[in-house]
Amino acid sequence: SLRALQRVTVPLSVTKLDTYAFSDCGNLESVQFSEGLEIIGERAFRGCTELRSMIVPSSVTELGYGAFGGCTNLTEVILLGGGRLLNQGFLKRGLFSGRGVLNQQALNEIIGHGNALRDCPSTNAFYGCPLTTLKISISRSLPERMERLPRECRLSIEQRVHGLRRLELTQDGNILVCFSHIRGPSGFFNGSSNLYAVEDTNDETAESLHQILRLISFHELKESSILIELAMWKSSLVEDRAPADSRTSVPDPAKSLIMDYCGFTGFLEPAIEGD
């Protein structure tokens, strides 16, 4: 029977899990979703008390009411939809963007309106779970910038990530940003204490991520300046060589960073793209 299941792998062909799909499967310990799943229905995993962690693919756009309600051992949830759940302006400019890192509206649309403390707890996908932190993966653009850096630069950034409480580095090189999952006050809404909010308390997550963004930009600018120095040195070796033969290309995004740093991005961008 379904209630005897211990592990479930949801295939690529499944785009929706229906209401109560695996409800009260008390022996279920592991669920592996595939990219392509879009909806996890209401109370789909309600009462699966052996679940301890959950990774939700980026393709999921909706977690139904109480989808994981009453999963009393579920302490870790990772949402892979960082491209949608995090403000992309922040990932480009950090605290200078004037916006927080969490896209609260997009998060509410996925995990239910119970994400706001004023709403009914039963609308939250994780009501009754002992979650203290919700983790969201950053879009691949940031790890890709790290991968383009020399090894010693990457190690420096990874070491800094390990030292920041609100960031985690996964084995595949991705970065998770962590947000507090706060239980509402006891007695709120007819005595319920299962009401939650997801918050960046004191902007701690934003501050941590801003540090990493600055460090990546620093190493990119440093490496690009070395390339420029090499190009100048190369051109000075053979004075009679044509200037075109002495050029050394500066890779993106270092090129854009230099232009942005100098305030020339909007003015010279067409020339950069046509290089």
Rank of each mutant, 00 (worst) to 15 (best):
L2H: 00
L5C: 09
R7L: 02
D18Y: 02
A21V: 03
F22K: 13
C25W: 03
N27V: 04
L28D: 04
S30M: 08
Q32F: 08
Q32W: 05
I40M: 07
F45P: 10
R52M: 08
P57D: 05
P57T: 01
E62D: 06
E62P: 00
G66Q: 07
L74K: 11
E76Q: 15
L80R: 14
G82L: 07
G83Q: 07
R84D: 05
L86P: 02
N87A: 06
L91K: 11
R93N: 14
G94N: 12
G98T: 14
G100P: 01
R118I: 13
R118T: 11
P121V: 02
N124W: 06
Y127F: 13
T132F: 04
T132G: 07
K135G: 00
R140Y: 02
L142I: 15
P150Q: 03
C153M: 08
L155Q: 07
S156E: 10
E158T: 07
E158A: 11
Q159K: 14
H162M: 08
R165G: 07
G173C: 06
N174T: 11
C178T: 02
H181Q: 04
G184I: 08
P185I: 08
P185C: 09
S186R: 10
F189V: 13
N190S: 14
N194G: 10
L195Q: 09
A197H: 08
V198Y: 05
T201R: 15
D203K: 12
Q211Y: 01
I212N: 00
S217V: 00
K222M: 13
S224W: 04
S225L: 13
A231M: 15
M232F: 04
E239K: 14
R241K: 12
R241V: 05
P243L: 01
S246K: 15
T248E: 08
V250I: 15
V250G: 05
K255P: 01
M259I: 05
M259Q: 07
C262K: 11
F264C: 11
G266T: 03
F267V: 13
E269G: 07
E269L: 14
P270C: 12
E273I: 05
